[in-house]
Amino acid sequence: MAAAMIANTRPRTIAAWLYIVAALIVAIVVVGGVTRLTESGLSITEWKPLIGAVPPLTEAQWQAEFANYRRIPQYEAINHGMTLAGFKAIFFWEYLHRFLGRIIGLAFLIPFVWFAARRQIPRGYFWRLFALFALICLQGTFGWLMVRSGLTHRTEVAPGWLATHLLTALFTLAGMVWTALDLRRLARESGARPARLTGFGLAATAILTVQLLYGALMAGLRAGRVANDWPLMNGSIFPGPSQSGESLGKLLFDDPATVHFIHRWWVWVAVVMLVLLARKVKPLDRRAPVAIHIAFGTQILLGIATVMSDVNVTLAGLHQLVGALLVIAVTWGIHAIGQQSHYRVS
């Protein structure tokens, strides 16, 4: 009976499905970045998970949506006098972002229920997959809380909520890839155990997370426009905080110049760790180190180009794309180390 249940599982198929969902998450991360860069995130002022999937179809519906937008501070402070055509342009990006979120939810939920009903999920993976779905739902909730933070007393979303929203997406992406890698290994070796997060892997994750956090805060605070030269910032290593007399917490997380400075220079701490990671992974998987080096090298160049272009939307969008790909590459490398640790223990 147990052997029949094991034979009925589909680890390779489930892994392929998770890779597809991961690709959709990469897409929504990029679209989310463009939505922020084009100041489109507050164009839809209500959260309607079901009926909101249908965009305005008539002139009256468009006028109603536009009227809702004209009631929030961003319209008065930034887009006063915007035409309906201009509103439709920013509405497009926010609608696309939310639409992709719905697609991701369905792309995960429907196959998950199907695999579970047919008992094709390998033993020990049901609750992991359920946790990933919970993260997707949490991500949608964080997205709405982020939008809501900019509807009353602000002209943009709160940077803290934006960072939470983005980091949750990237954490979910890493979880998808990690679980898919475990399942691929299980498909090749029936007795393979899931990879463990080693101490080194945890350190690499923490260092990269700091860089990703400050990247998100850069977007939320528009800190990329503080300085458009490199390697100096407005002609000096650190031109000083944007405002004086701030508390340490506000200085570290809410001051555009300080956030820019940390994001600009912490990357080299991350580079050292990623080079060490690549060297550690190379004997285990020769492809992962190549992916890690290409990803972080490209990401640094795009970051510099984005700053020097005064945050060109295309360059900034590519920067966000490669950031997501870097998360995948690093997850791949850390997973390889975690898989190998089983053999060392045994």
Rank of each mutant, 00 (worst) to 15 (best):
M1R: 14
A4Q: 14
A4Y: 11
T9A: 09
R12K: 15
L18Y: 02
L18W: 03
I20C: 12
V21Q: 08
V21T: 11
A22T: 08
A23E: 02
V29S: 02
G32C: 06
G32M: 03
V34H: 04
T38V: 04
S40G: 04
S43C: 11
W47A: 10
G52T: 02
G52M: 11
A53N: 11
P55E: 12
P56L: 11
L57F: 12
L57S: 07
E59G: 00
W62C: 01
E65D: 13
F66I: 02
N68Y: 03
I72P: 08
I72H: 09
Q74F: 00
A77M: 08
H80S: 15
M82F: 13
I90V: 10
F91Y: 15
F91E: 05
W93G: 08
L96D: 09
H97L: 07
F99C: 08
L100Y: 14
R102I: 06
F112C: 05
F112P: 07
V113S: 05
V113E: 08
R118L: 13
R119S: 06
Q120E: 12
Y125P: 14
F130M: 13
L132R: 10
A134D: 02
C137E: 11
G140V: 04
M146R: 01
V147L: 04
S149I: 12
S149P: 12
G150F: 03
L151A: 00
H153P: 05
R154Q: 09
E156N: 14
A163Q: 08
T164F: 13
L167C: 14
A169T: 07
V177P: 06
T179C: 07
A180V: 00
R185H: 12
A187F: 04
S190N: 14
T198Q: 01
F200K: 12
L202H: 10
A206Q: 04
L208T: 14
L208E: 01
L208F: 03
T209V: 05
V210L: 15
G215N: 11
L217T: 08
A219Y: 06
A219K: 01
G220F: 14
A223W: 09
R225A: 15
R225W: 12
W230E: 00
M233R: 09
G235L: 07
G235V: 15
I237A: 13
S242D: 03
S244K: 13
G245C: 10
L248I: 13
L248Q: 06
K250I: 06
T258P: 09
H260R: 01
I262P: 09
I262T: 10
W265Q: 11
V269K: 11
V272K: 10
M273W: 10
V275W: 05
V275S: 08
V275Q: 05
L277F: 07
A278C: 12
V281C: 11
K282D: 09
R287D: 12
A291P: 03
A295R: 03
G297T: 03
G297R: 01
G297D: 13
L301N: 00
G303N: 02
V307M: 13
V313H: 15
L321V: 06
L321Y: 02
V322M: 11
G323V: 06
G323P: 10
I334S: 00
A336K: 15
S341G: 00
Y343I: 13
R344D: 13
S346D: 12
